[in-house]
Amino acid sequence: MTNFLEQTFNGLVSGSFLALLALGLAVIFGLLRVVNFAHGAIYMLGAFGAYVLADELGLSFWAALIAVPLGLAVVGVVLERAFIHRLTRLDPLYNFLLTFGLTLILQDLVKARYGVQSSPYAVPSALSGSVDLGLFEFPAYRVFVLAMSVAICVGVWALLTRTRIGMVVRAATERPELTRAFGIDVGRWITPVFGFGVALAGLAGVLAAPMRAVHPLMGADLIIVVFAVVVIGGLGSIFGSVAVGFVIGVLQVWAEAYAPESWRALIAQTLPFLLMAVVLLWRPAGLFGREETA
């Protein structure tokens, strides 16, 4: 039982990254109708940002946790103004291709500067020990990651459901044309929302740096699973994306721990896509998605 709970906790931590990345993707897709393929590369830049700030400027993890997402939010705003908004009137495939191209460029730039090997990033000393959770001890940093991602997801949920800004974003996400007819300049919200979504990916990257190998392709490996998470949750559904992110994280860790040994890796890797196929056959708009309206 203790082992099962421990594995479940591990799954929730793993799901934290999926949930944060899916949250950013869902927020961006909801308002812009852009499938941001570069989200994984931004996550990688978040981790490398933390590494570079520590290695070249001696800045702590805590400074990186604030500076990197803010810096990447600015990058997101520039990307949206310079490229993405020019293509939003065209077929969504154009922005998908644009962000795919950006991914390749960002990955190659990082490869050229830092190589393809993993770069080390230490767990911050304040979080290097373990925490006694009653039935088992768990690394403090992992508890912090889980607490942070839950707090951020709840914070974003509160922002979207309890504030006027959230009300406007929800309305513009659900029915952009109608919202314009009610005197709301939907276009004004697009750039900050894109920046915010990118900042979330950057934050996930910083949180990942002490736990996962920091290398140029770390986002490329993860983003495909995140896309499956967002599709299962329902494109544009904030709640669906976050909930499914945590669930997939737990299911993958359970598969790695309890599936027959020779099948573990295969099951863990293919599980999100099998679930995606089943959900799409059953509910084409995803578990919490809605059909498009004007």
């Binding site: 929800r170 309305a171 659900e174 314009r180 007819a181 009610f182 005197g183 004007a294």
Partner: peptide
Amino acid sequence: PAHSRARLGLGWVQDDRGSYATLTVTE
């Protein structure tokens, strides 16, 4: 644009009622 026209005093009542599923009645 449409949002400026609304602010100049045009009120839009859409043929499908234009209700938002993600917003309460008060919202």
